[in-house]
Simulated scan of single mutants.
Amino acid sequence: MSGLLEVSGISVTFDGFRAINNLSFSIGAAELRAVIGPNGAGKTTFMDIVTGKTRPDGGRVLWGERSIDLLKLDEAQIAREGIGRKFQRPTVFEDQTVAENLMMALKAHRSPWRVLFWKPAGADHARVEELAVQVGLGEALARKSGELSHGQKQWLEIGMLLAQEPRLLLVDEPAAGMTLAEREQTTSLLVDLAKTHAVVVVEHDMDFVRRLNCKVTVLHEGSVLAEGSLDHVTANQQVIEVYLGR
C-alpha cells in the first residue's frame, strides 16, 4: 500500500439511492487534495465513511503503514488512529478563551482514564501556544472564542483538530464566509499543514481550489469523474457538462 489512506470500490445506498458508487481514492502521508463536485456528488458521504459515521455496503478502506481496516473500527477508534474531521460550521466553546479551547482539545486527546487525573503541565501550555501560533491566533490566546471573527473560529477549530495529532485532516468548505484576507491565510495554513499531514479539502469555491494549487478529485453521482490538476479536470468535457450543465 503506497498511500496513507486507500479507499477501494466502496458503495453505499440509502433508501434505494446510491450515494457512493464503486468509489476509489488514495492520498499520501504529506499531500494536499481538493475534492470537488456538485451537490449530491457524495462528498459528505465519502467523509462519513472514512470517519466511521456511515458503513458502506461493500469495498475496503485501509489506513496507515499496517493497512488497518477502518471498516472494523468505530468513530472514536478511527479518530484515535489519527483521522480528524473539521465540519463546515465551526464548533468552538464560545465562552472559553482560545487557550482554554485548545487545552480542552489536548485533554480530550487522552485516554478516558488519564483524562480523569489530568492536570495541564508546562509542556501542555507550551503546546497550546505553539498551536495558536501555527493557526495564526498567537496574539488571541486570552480572547473569548465568541469574540473571534468567523475565519478566526475556523482556524481555532483547525488548531483544536491539530491538538489531537491527526495524520489526516478532512476539512469541509473552509473558505465559506471568510473575508479575502482570511481566505489567503487559510490557503497558506492548509498548504503548510500538507507538508507534514495528509489534508483533504472539500470545497465548492473554484477560486479557493485554484489557490491551493494541488491535485483535484472530481466526484459525480458517487464516483470519481476526473482527477488531476484543476486545469486538467476543468478541461474535461464530462466535468464541464456536470458543472456547467446545471
Rank of each mutant, 00 (worst) to 15 (best):
H220G: 04
S188N: 12
W155C: 07
A126E: 12
H150G: 05
C214T: 15
E130W: 06
A126H: 12
E182C: 06
L162G: 02
L189V: 08
L193E: 05
L170S: 00
L190H: 09
M206P: 01
A175Q: 05
G146E: 09
L170N: 01
R143S: 14
V199T: 02
G222D: 11
S188Y: 06
K153M: 09
A181N: 11
A140Q: 15
V202D: 01
V216I: 15
M206G: 04
G138V: 14
G146K: 05
E129H: 13
E203D: 09
K153P: 11
H204W: 08
L161E: 05
V199W: 02
E221I: 00
E130M: 13
H197F: 11
V128P: 03
V128Q: 07
E173S: 01
H197A: 06
L219Q: 03
Q154Y: 14
V128I: 13
Q134V: 03
A181E: 08
R210Q: 12
E147F: 12
L212K: 09
P120V: 08
H204E: 08
G151T: 10
V201E: 00
R183A: 11
G222I: 10
L161A: 12
L161I: 08
L219K: 00
A198F: 01
A126M: 07
C214R: 03
M178H: 09
G122Y: 00
N213A: 13
R167G: 06
P120I: 11
L148W: 11
L169V: 05
V216Y: 07
V201N: 00
R211I: 09
E221F: 04
L131P: 04
L190F: 09
V171D: 00
W155R: 15
E203K: 02
L156F: 13
V199S: 02
V191W: 04
L219S: 02
T179L: 07
L189M: 11
G159S: 11
K144A: 14
L190E: 06
K153S: 02
R210L: 08
V218W: 00
E139L: 04
V128D: 05
L190W: 07
Q185V: 00
R167H: 15
E157R: 05
E173G: 00
L156S: 11
Q134N: 10
L148F: 06
Q164N: 07
L193K: 03
K215I: 14
D205F: 11
L131A: 08
G159P: 05
V201I: 12
R143L: 14
A132N: 06
R167Q: 14
D207H: 12
K195A: 14
G177T: 01
D172N: 02
A140T: 07
A194N: 04
A132Q: 09
V171I: 15
L170Y: 10
E139M: 10
E221Y: 07
Q164W: 06
V135W: 12
G222Y: 03
V135D: 03
R143T: 11
T196I: 09
C214V: 10
V209G: 04
E139R: 13
E184N: 03
T187V: 15
S145V: 04
A132L: 09
M178N: 00
A121W: 01
K144H: 14
I158K: 13
R211S: 14
T196M: 04
M178C: 02
L193H: 09
I158Y: 15
A163I: 04
V218F: 08
S188E: 15
L131M: 12
V216K: 03
V191A: 14
V128F: 03
D207E: 15
R143K: 12
G177A: 01
V133W: 01
V218T: 05
S145L: 03
A123H: 09
D124H: 07
